[in-house]
Computed example of a mutant assay.
Amino acid sequence: MTPQRTPHVLIIGAGIAGMSATIALRRTGAAVDLIDIEPGWTVSGAGLTITGPTLRALRQLGVYEEVAAQGYVGEGIRVCGVDGSHIRDIPTPMPAQAQVHGSGGIGRPVLYRILSAKVLACGVRPRFGTSVTRIVQDAGGVDVTFSDRTRGRYDLVVAADGIYSRTRRQVFPGAPRPHYTGQSVWRMFVPRPPGIDRRHYFLGGEVKVGWTPVAATRMYLFVVERTPRRTRRPHELPAALARLLAPYGGHVGDFRESIGPGSEIAYRPLETFSLPGPWYRGRVLLVGDAAHPTTPQLASGAGIAVEDALVLAEELARHRTVPATLQAFSARHEQRCRFVVDSSIEIGRLEQRQAPPHAQTAVVERALARLAEPI
């Protein structure tokens, strides 16, 4: 690729990381093809907790106002005991120049609608039901063969195809596989009671319980459970979740009473892996969960995926050549992503040991303060 020629980029995966990369790279003038193996934009899971640094990234991406209007933004995290009593509040300040709140939440389907509209508005029409069957690189570019037997040549390939990335298996054949962390998470939407103005943690019990407002009248409830062996999805989700919540008081008790056979509950074992750097080979770069999957304890997985997109676009605009761009991207963002993953895993280990609430929240507070620093 010469500095005068418009770079042609293939993005594999139309989730949060892939859509963010599409939006950010289009702003640099790059030509972008976006594909996804699914038949359309699909999303699983209930809600998404958004930290202040993630809100800053969403502002830089150009979607903060929509997120604030259709989701929730506020300040602070309230830490409570099992009985619902108030223990302390964790501040979530952001630098004034960031022009965002320190905390937030949104339904995943809502965020997908916001990002997908932005993708379409920047002139990209995703090819759904399409995957990559072959990648061949040379010094000047990447030849890609698709599942529909079409082919393309690209200056850069960005793999945003998730924790089970097919691209990672093709380009990094020796990469570690995802492994179970010892915890599983339950999620469901619940009504947002009047007066609830922030995220909550309920610590000190057998499981970690929390909620995040995601709209004016809606929250999502999450329960992180220690299960030493990876277990299959329980057959009776509502009854099993109600049992886990039995010791908890306050509004959690009210939510427990509302759980019934028709309750929509998402259940997922937590997995991760650590991929040695750099997260690129030649002209193929892994981003998001394909490179640095994180557990939800720090609520920053989506945030660092959006940051991947922003940093990549900034470095491409600065350097204009793919090798220099990828080197600069790795030097600038890889350690920040590892910090998020390591901090999240540390919190999860403290939860599994049932460490005192102050030990768990100290990691959260320290990590959020560091992430508030400039990228």
Rank of each mutant, 00 (worst) to 15 (best):
Q4E: 10
R5N: 05
H8M: 05
S20I: 02
A21R: 00
T22K: 04
T22S: 13
L25T: 04
L25H: 02
R27N: 12
G29R: 06
G29M: 10
A31T: 07
E65K: 10
E66H: 06
Q70M: 05
G74S: 15
V82N: 09
H86K: 09
T92K: 03
P93D: 08
G102Y: 03
A117H: 06
R127P: 10
V132S: 05
I135R: 01
V136E: 11
G141W: 05
T145A: 14
T150S: 15
T150N: 11
D155C: 06
L156G: 03
Y164P: 09
S165C: 11
R169F: 02
R187K: 04
V190A: 06
R192N: 12
P193S: 13
F202N: 08
G204C: 10
K208V: 09
K208G: 04
G210M: 09
G210K: 03
W211R: 02
A216K: 14
F222Y: 15
F222K: 00
V223D: 01
V224E: 01
T231G: 07
A242Q: 11
P247M: 13
G249M: 10
R256Q: 12
E257T: 14
G260P: 11
E264Q: 15
S274F: 01
L275I: 12
G282D: 10
P293R: 07
A302E: 11
E307M: 08
P323C: 13
A324D: 14
T325F: 00
R332Q: 12
E334C: 13
E334T: 15
F339N: 03
Q352N: 07
R353C: 14
P357W: 05
H358E: 14
A372T: 04
E373Q: 15
